[in-house]
């Protein structure tokens, strides 16, 4: 009974996007002796899935999806250390490295994509804005992401996406590199040799799913 109440509460904090409460609720679950994996599978995850479904049906909206994703992230941060390493890996669809390219300080589009990827079950490392090609490469070597996402809002900075791709190819670092941002088009993505392009957050998730499936991670 107590157990069901806790799972319900976990479901609720993610479903309602109560970011500030998520960690505390996760902690309460663990303190009550619940299995960490059960917390995710029976508590938090179903809520995230339902928000995703309702978003697809036009019943929930982007901020709600982002809030649910962030609540999930807070809960995960508490629960994850209690999981065995092998089980931890199975929890994520893959690791995604995100950043806005050098010379460009636009953040919000990338942030939305990041939140949606988290909500979809990816692990996201956001390098922030004005990220140089060298930094992308260093962090990719360190974190071994399956996908690297390059954001640019300006026609003057989108050329930097090509720089990053070229650097990765020269260095022989394997990762699926995807590009996005207002001035970016499918033909630009093709021209610079990117592995994928998506025009909005929803299609970015679909793209990441496709690519992650391809790499078998």
């Amino acid at each position: 009974m107590e157990r069901d109440k806790l799972f319900e509460e976990m479901y609720r904090v993610v479903y309602e996007g109560e970011i500030e409460q998520a960690a505390q609720v996760a902690g309460r679950g663990l303190a009550a002796g619940l299995d960490p994996l059960d917390c995710l599978n029976l508590g938090f995850m179903p809520a995230l899935e339902r928000v995703g479904e309702e978003f697809g049906k036009g019943e929930k909206f982007l901020p709600e999806l982002v809030a649910a994703g962030e609540a999930m992230q807070r809960a995960l941060a508490v629960v994850q250390p209690h999981l065995a390493a092998a089980r931890r890996d199975r929890l994520t669809l893959g690791r995604v490295l995100l950043g806005t390219v050098e010379g460009d300080i636009h953040e919000i589009g990338k942030r939305i994509v990041g939140s949606l990827l988290i909500a979809a079950g990816f692990e996201v490392v956001d390098l922030g804005v004005d990220v140089s090609a060298a930094t992308f490469l260093d962090r990719a070597r360190e974190l071994r992401p399956s996908i690297v996402g390059l954001s640019a809002l300006l026609t003057t900075t989108m050329v930097r996406q090509k720089e990053v791709i070229d650097l990765f190819r020269q260095a022989g670092v394997r990762a699926q590199i995807i590009v996005g941002g207002a001035p970016v088009t499918a033909s630009w993505a093709e021209e610079i040799g990117a592995d994928g392009y998506a025009e909005d957050g929803g299609s970015a998730v679909a793209l990441a799913r496709k690519l992650a499936g391809g790499t078998g991670s």
Binding site: E16, G17, E18, I19, L62, P63, E64, V66, A67, G69, E70, E107, I108, R111, I112, S115
Partner: peptide, 10 residues
């Protein structure tokens, strides 16, 4: 910052 997931936004 941004207001995306703030309770006020929700």
């Amino acid at each position: 910052g941004n207001y995306l997931s703030d309770p006020h936004t929700l």
